[in-house]
Simulated assay, not measured.
Amino acid sequence: MSTSTPTLGTLLRRLRDREGLTLKQMSAKSGIPVSTLSKVEHDRLTLTYDKLYQLSQRLGMRMSDLFAEPSETVPKVTARRSLGDIDQAVRVETPNYDYYYLCTELRRKRMVPVITKIRAKSVEQFGELAHHAGEEYVYVLKGKIIVATEFYDPVTLSEGQSIYIDSNMGHAYLTADGCDEAEVLGVMSSADEELMQSLLNLHKDQQQTSERGRATKAISAAAA
């Protein structure tokens, strides 16, 4: 039995075939160059969060649909697997964080693995505390972080230390004093099949918060 799983490029090609679009037509519809779409379909390039969001909006679909094959009955034993390669990860880049989502081609995952590079130094810089369904585990790979949560005092974690929390509780991950950037491995778990979409929506909110913060600073500087 084959255990291979489709890549983002394979899913994109199947989506284009399902819609009856040529590469040129999909490029015109999505606003993404033909050369970029071709490289993605041949697994030589991935798309950033901004491009994925642009593609989903132009095609009138949810971003989570870009990571899923058409719905089908899943047997109790799937024997499926996916190798996590950071070069093939779906990247989400923001001023305060870089997210690398792994194994995104698997549908109906109960766990979402992600490597995150953290640069936010305060809750004010982070913005509103994050809330989403399920639970999550974070392990510090490099640097030192502060974990701020809704119901507990902030806790500092160094390399090799980890934390497990209820994701419904407001939370934020920040760099500790003396650390400009930290890197962590996180695993989010939930029975909610829309977990991936919820996480992507959080990134959109973070980007908007960062943009408002930069605009406020610019206005203050101009008024000074």
Rank of each mutant, 00 (worst) to 15 (best):
A79Q: 11
V40A: 10
N96P: 02
A218Q: 13
G186K: 06
I86F: 04
G127F: 05
L106E: 12
N168F: 00
G170N: 08
V40Q: 06
S220E: 15
K117T: 09
Y137F: 15
E41I: 09
C179W: 02
E194D: 15
L106A: 12
E19R: 15
M63Q: 09
A79N: 14
L47Q: 07
L199F: 15
K51H: 08
R107N: 10
L66G: 11
H42M: 12
H203I: 12
L55A: 06
I32Q: 06
M111Q: 10
G20R: 07
A191G: 12
R44P: 01
L66R: 06
R214E: 15
K217G: 11
I115E: 09
S162C: 13
H42F: 01
M61V: 14
E19S: 09
T94V: 11
A182I: 02
S210L: 06
A215M: 12
T78N: 05
S210H: 15
M63D: 06
P95H: 10
S190R: 00
T175W: 07
L59V: 09
P95K: 07
Q207E: 07
T3R: 13
L23F: 10
Q161S: 11
A89Y: 12
R110W: 04
P113Y: 13
D180Y: 04
G143I: 02
H171N: 02
R14K: 13
P75R: 08
I115Q: 07
A218V: 00
T216G: 00
Q25A: 15
E150Y: 02
T216V: 12
K39S: 07
G178T: 08
E128P: 03
R44T: 01
L45E: 12
Y49G: 05
R62L: 11
C103Q: 12
S4N: 11
I145D: 04
K29P: 02
L8T: 10
K39Y: 10
V184T: 13
S35K: 05
T10H: 14
M111P: 02
E93C: 04
R44Q: 14
I32N: 07
E128I: 09
S190P: 00
L47M: 14
M26W: 06
R58I: 04
T216H: 09
A120L: 02
M196Y: 00
P75M: 02
E135P: 01
T7R: 14
E193G: 03
R119N: 00
L55E: 06
R16P: 09
P113H: 11
T175P: 07
M196K: 12
V147H: 03
R91G: 04
V147S: 01
I145Q: 02
D166Y: 03
T78W: 03
G160W: 03
S167G: 09
H132C: 09
M111W: 05
V140H: 08
L55K: 05
R107D: 13
A223P: 04
V90L: 14
T116L: 07
Y139F: 15
D50E: 13
S2V: 06
V155S: 08
